[in-house]
């Protein structure tokens, strides 16, 4: 999968690239409006991430151009402007999603995955975690033939960790994914731990959950070999 990152903050673009590479994406970077335009007309991409505040032109203008050359790509607008009208215009102009800076990198990845599922209608098979099977699209988890009752947020947690398997996610990353900007402001709160505890309790009734690891002082991780 090819990703074009059009972002004038070079360090930021680079960090996005580093993260996405780990998830097996091939990334190309552009740092200006013209640079972006050049790359867009020359190549085909699966994902195009556009920063709105670009030197040399408006990102929304670039989006309009890009839609012509890469009509099938998935577009995510990335901006620090965070103005409501930008979001509305961006989505009206055919962007698939919108991320406000600062965002967590796993969040970017998960949004890209979500678009793929929606847009490219990639039929994912049931995937296994431990002795369980999970369907990220239809949002269920089973043990043999028994469906496991997870709350919406519990399932969100499991699927987010599963999407980034073998990678530790912090409580901050997890809570922002689940509660967005309403994530709680007092970090010593242990509500993520409470959710994990609940999940373990529900799953342990059927099979062991040693794949759901606590990384002490860091966060949680799903181990999958």
């Amino acid at each position: 999968m090819k990703v074009l990152i059009i972002e004038d903050e070079k360090t930021l673009a680079y960090e996005m690239e580093v993260f996405l590479k780990k998830a097996f994406f091939i990334c190309e970077l552009a740092h200006t409006f013209n640079d972006g335009l050049k790359k867009l007309t020359a190549g085909l991409y699966d994902y195009i991430l556009i920063d709105l505040g670009l030197p040399g032109g408006d990102g929304l203008e670039l989006l309009r151009n890009a839609k012509r050359s890469n009509p099938d790509a998935a577009y995510i607008i990335i901006t620090a402007r965070g103005r409501l009208e930008d979001r509305v215009t961006g989505l009206d102009m055919g962007a698939d999603d919108y991320l406000s800076k600062p965002f967590f990198l796993p969040e970017l990845h998960s949004r890209m995955q979500a678009i793929s599922r929606r847009k490219f209608k990639i039929e994912q098979e049931l995937q296994s975690i431990g002795e369980f099977l999970i369907d990220l699209q239809k949002r269920f988890m089973v043990f043999q033939d028994i469906s496991i009752e997870l709350s919406r947020k519990e399932f969100d947690l499991v699927s987010y960790l599963f999407l980034h398997k073998n990678m530790v996610l912090t409580r901050g990353q997890l809570s922002e994914h689940i509660w967005g900007t309403f994530a709680d402001d007092d970090y010593d709160s242990n509500y993520i731990d409470a959710h994990i505890k609940n999940i373990r309790k529900k799953l342990n009734a059927y099979a062991p959950t040693e794949w759901l690891e606590t990384v002490r002082g860091v966060g949680y991780r799903i181990r999958k070999h």
Binding site: E9, E15, M16, F19, P102, F103, L105, T170
Partner: peptide, 15 residues
């Protein structure tokens, strides 16, 4: 927000 963004993403990758 932009510098915070850079720092945060750098830390995430380092983590």
């Amino acid at each position: 927000l932009t510098p915070i963004s850079i720092l945060q993403n750098k830390m995430e990758n380092l983590l």
